[in-house]
Amino acid sequence: MTGLVARIVDSVAAIPAAAWDACLPGEAEDHSYYRACDEAAAASGTGLRCAAVAIADAQGIAAVAPFFRLDYRLDTPLQGRLRGVADAVYRYVPRLLTLRIICIGSPYADRCHLGFAPWLDGPRRETAMRAIVDALRRQAAAEGAQLVAFKDLAPADDALVAPCLSREGFARIGSLPVAILDLPYADEDGYLASLSAATRKDIRRKLARAQAVRIEHRSDITGLEELIAELYESTRRRSGLDYGELEVLPPGYFAAVSRALGERAVFALYWIGDELAAFNLLLIEPGRVIDKFLGMRYPLAREHNLYAVSWMANVRFCLSRGIVSLQSGQTAYASKLRFGSRLVPTRLHVLHRSKLLQWGLRRIASTVSFDRFDPDLARLPAAR
């Protein structure tokens, strides 16, 4: 580890923004995004705040990553009836199903933002990775955390760091894939032509019945913050999925992100008369839009086919700006696949401080992956 110094800080804000963004260039979920998430969590006293780890060398900050602490329920991947059984066990013996975990990544991102300075070559990058792992191991021991984990590594990042993490003893587990819609089309008709005839007909029928919907795009949501938060929370509760604290946003999240990102955060608002019936939060990058969160008011949204309306509005938004990729997250896979998306796998890497328990974890890793228990993916084995 010669020449590298690891530092754990209480907030992403403690790392200079320029250094952070140099390690993770071009990301909408940048230093200002994570700072906004932290500020919302701190102001409300709820939510999982993101601390950070930074590795420095003689040239400056060489590697960065957010991390958070979580009392993690081992039954979190389970859904439906299996989750009901686990809930019954948890009520009587919560400690049996709960582990304290330090997790690289963020509950507010679908990707593990693990970044390296551009001057690091392959061997130095691996040395920096080992420095991160060592720092987290020490932090876990100091806090009494049993697990260290890397959450939702994208394929390129996973290929980069998986060999190092394997040598360090981590178990590799499947996480939920991310839906991506590629948009190499000149216009909306080109996109629709790429879909099946039945899907194309269904979308056109739903759009024709949605004439009462008024769509507005804005970055400033002053006066609408509570309405937007209410729509998100209502939709989250209706989803039928429960990933615990990993999907709960702190109060004030939407307002904080709006202020921090400015025009890089666009809220697509769907009005029926004077009533806000749905919203999308879109994060904008030069070649990609992240459809970050969706909230709908029921039954109004269903009556006006707002899922299909919002999907097509986002497609038009991208096409009008020459954006070729629409990322729509880790839920509702059946609809997203029908509308032309592909699924990009993500990976977890987990290390238990007990060598014996880590030995067991490595042997059951393939059976406890998140993608095995998602209801949509279970019905779509080819997608899995």
Rank of each mutant, 00 (worst) to 15 (best):
A86C: 01
L281W: 13
G45T: 11
T346L: 08
A56H: 10
G322A: 10
K336L: 00
C23E: 11
I132E: 00
V12M: 07
H217W: 07
L96M: 15
A43P: 07
V161G: 03
A145L: 03
G287F: 01
W119K: 12
E225H: 03
M1V: 12
A229I: 08
A140R: 13
Y108D: 09
D87N: 15
G105H: 05
G329W: 00
S328R: 02
L82H: 11
S196L: 08
R288L: 13
G122Y: 07
L306R: 06
R209K: 10
S310P: 02
A334Q: 15
G144I: 13
H113D: 10
L351C: 08
F317E: 09
A198Y: 08
N314R: 13
P25W: 00
G190N: 04
Y243V: 02
P66G: 08
R100I: 08
D158A: 14
K201Y: 10
F370V: 00
S320I: 11
V213F: 05
Q327W: 02
G60L: 12
A17K: 11
D57A: 07
I173E: 01
Q358V: 09
Q358K: 05
P107Q: 00
P77N: 02
H113M: 02
G340A: 00
V350S: 04
E226N: 08
V64M: 00
L147Y: 01
E263K: 10
I132Q: 02
P345C: 05
G84K: 14
P381S: 12
L294M: 13
A212V: 11
P107F: 01
S11L: 07
K201F: 04
P286D: 15
Y232W: 04
D57Y: 09
A58Q: 14
Q358N: 15
L96N: 06
R100A: 08
L78M: 13
C112W: 00
D57F: 04
S166A: 15
T199L: 05
L227G: 07
A383V: 08
A36V: 13
E126M: 03
L24P: 14
A142E: 13
L97Q: 15
S366R: 14
V12E: 04
K355Y: 03
G60Y: 05
P250I: 06
G287D: 14
F370W: 14
L261Q: 06
K201Q: 13
I272N: 06
S166G: 12
F254S: 08
L120S: 04
A334V: 01
S258I: 05
N314K: 11
A313I: 00
Q327F: 02
D182P: 04
D10S: 15
S310V: 04
E263A: 14
A28F: 00
R7N: 05
I102D: 06
S366G: 09
P345M: 03
V213Q: 07
D38T: 09
Q59H: 12
V9H: 04
A156S: 12
H304G: 02
S175K: 01
Q358H: 09
F254N: 09
G144Q: 06
